[in-house]
Design a protein around this nucleic acid. Sequence first.
DNA 1: TTCCATGTTCCGCA
DNA 2: TTGCGGAACATGGA
Length: 263
Amino acid sequence: MPELPDVQMCKEYFDATSLKKEIAGIDRCDRRLLNNISPRGLKSRLSGRSFSEMRRYGKYLFARFAGKGYLFLHFGMTGFLKAYRKEENAPAHIGIRIRFADNTFLAFSCCRRLGHIGITGTVEDFVRARQLGPDALTLTRNRTAFADRMGGRRGSTKGALMNQKIMAGIGNIYADEILFQAGLHPAKKVSELEEDQLHALADTAARILETAIQRRAGAKGWPARWLLPRREEGRSCPRCSDIIRRMKVSGRNGYFCPGHQKG
DNA sequence: TTCCATGTTCCGCA
DNA sequence: TTGCGGAACATGGA
């Protein structure tokens, strides 16, 4: 569940379950998921402290802990959080688990192990070091800034939307939805888009991200007229009843409707 | 068994 | 030199 709206849901989940509780320790820790710290180091940085607030930037989550610094989390393709008390409620594939002093747990489950966790001093330093572009939710709300940042690109529109250095937060799933609703073919070159098309693309993207967050549409619960509920080759398009096709663009398989995504 | 998957990084080519 | 796209990565489910 790892694109911007999903990560936003993880943030709210973390807020509701794991803030302001004393951390007793890290009792499960797969070092392959750790980015820049050892299991021992992570334990010593967090034990006895508590998380005071959460931030989301793109697909990353940052949990501020007393003392100084942030625990950052990235979910890869299959990561998610689960808070629980009883062992029988534990998720599968726990990569890292925080034990709180009140005998509850927060588990970071990561089946494919493509996620990672680490420590950073400030969010701004982290964003700079990774060369992340502006958060997609912020950038798409400003159509002029969006057009400036997208403009002049050589590659496909889909590739640009998914490029975390251009803007952070959009992945394969939501890029498909944005192009679907904007009526743009996934392979359309950014350089072929008119300015008003870029503006419309920004508006569409912002609306989709906001709607997904509002509806908490993590893995399902998307509106029926969206592509996502039927993102599969051979299904009928909810807009024009043409047939959904699959196409590889920028190295990822995507789905689109050839009937109304011609622009 | 084979293919596919919401992630990023790395390498080769224009 | 820069930026783009494809392959690689790890793992499990259909």
